[in-house]
């Protein structure tokens, strides 16, 4: 067989989720930073830096879900029902913050505070739930045939709660470094100050997850620490360390886009670490890509569209970011 459809689809879905983490990560991060910024105009500026693009960012999440549905229906159905609790909470969070973009400007003074709280709380809940889902995913699921056998609360473990907090920190880093690019003056300065402890916290978090995972899962330990893998994979932790130091260094010297770029790279490294640990399982610990794959007719049909349309989507997304480039000033927003 010419092309390996399940592998291609894994790459596409992984790319979609990566795009989601990268793009919605910084706009969720803005909600996470809300409690640290009290001034109303600063908050408006923060929201205005993402207002024209947040919907597109969130669409990558929908693509991840739909792509999984199309290419790996078994994984879609098992994972989503196993992760029922965090996903419902994530949706609740996304609803609260999604509408707040519009509502906080349309509400009168009395309601405004409420939508600020909804925006921040929604961002926290959505991010934390995504992190819990991620942790539960790494932990794996008890599956027989096409059905999930565990209970609703199985996804809540110390590890998954920890990854929930970890993701909050990660998105906060993306949010603060994004705002360093998009804002100036006091607000920008505040973000530079905030970004430092967040970076350190993230490094610690990554360290803990990297130890915890192989300790809890011998399979993953042998993947990383057996020879010759250890040589191939060694760059991942080393680069992680170097990148973190790079962010801290850049934050010291009138930073612009560098911290954000490095933060993205950091997330990418974490992501590839995850891929190394779990491949080729799509429902860890036992169901592989090939077990869960849709019929080739479904994968092939959708692949044509994906390969053709995704580049176009990327092009006009880039154009839209280009239209709204530059600093956002207080009280100004987009005009």
């Amino acid at each position: 067989m010419g092309i390996n459809l399940p592998i291609l689809w894994t790459i596409i879905i992984a790319f979609g989720l990566m795009m989601y983490v990268v793009m919605d990560g910084f706009d969720l991060g803005i909600g996470i930073l809300f409690p640290f910024i009290r001034d109303r105009h600063d908050r408006d500026t923060m929201v205005n830096t993402v207002a024209p693009v947040w919907d597109g960012n969130e669409t990558w999440l929908v693509l991840g879900g739909a792509g999984l549905f199309a290419a790996f229906p078994l994984a879609y159905s098992v994972l989503l029902s196993a992760l029922y609790l965090p996903l419902v909470l994530m949706l609740v969070g996304l609803i609260c913050r999604g509408v707040s973009f519009e509502f906080r400007f349309k509400a009168d003074e009395a309601h405004r505070r409420f939508w600020d709280v909804a925006f921040a709380a929604g961002s926290y809940v959505a991010t934390f739930s995504q992190g819990v889902a991620l942790g539960a995913f790494i932990n794996g699921f008890h599956v027989t045939g096409p059905s999930y056998q565990g209970g609703a609360l199985d996804c809540l473990t110390p590890f998954s709660l920890f990854t929930g907090v970890g993701l909050l920190v990660a998105y906060a880093l993306l949010g603060s470094t994004w705002l360093i690019i998009k804002t100036e003056g006091a607000l920008q300065h505040r973000m530079i100050v905030l970004a430092r402890p967040i970076t350190v916290a993230l490094l610690v978090g990554i360290g803990i997850v990297s130890l915890w995972t192989p300790l809890a899962h011998p399979q993953i330990a042998s993947r990383w620490f057996s020879f010759p893998n250890i040589i191939f994979f060694a760059p991942v932790p080393l680069l992680t360390l170097a990148t973190t130091l790079g962010i801290l260094y850049a934050l010291r010297r009138d930073p612009h886009a560098v911290p954000f770029g490095l933060a993205l790279f950091l997330l990418f490294l974490g992501y590839s670490g995850l891929a190394i640990s779990l491949f080729p399982n799509i429902i860890p610990p036992s169901v592989s890509l090939w077990d869960a794959a849709a019929p080739p007719q479904s994968m092939g049909f959708t692949l044509v569209g994906a390969l053709f349309i995704i580049p176009i989507v990327l092009a006009y997304t880039a154009w839209s970011y280009h239209v709204f480039r530059g600093k956002v000033r207080a009280g100004e927003g987009y005009h």
């Binding site: 597109g56 669409t59 929908v62 693509l63 879900g65 739909a66 792509g67 999984l68 549905f69 199309a70 290419a71 229906p73 078994l74 879609y76 159905s77 098992v78 994972l79 989503l80 029902s81 992760l83 029922y84 996903l87 419902v88 096409p146 059905s147 999930y148 849709a294 019929p295 007719q297 479904s298 049909f301 959708t302 569209g305 994906a306 349309i309 995704i310 989507v313 997304t317």
Partner: peptide
């Protein structure tokens, strides 16, 4: 579809999934 109708998703996902994906790609974006 996945959280509440998982047997449907698994059974009919080969048809309904690609249609939804095309909707995301060609319309939502």
């Amino acid at each position: 579809f996945g959280t509440n109708w998982s047997y449907f998703s698994n059974y009919a996902g080969g048809v309904v999934g690609p249609l939804l994906t095309y909707e995301v790609l060609s319309a939502f974006f």
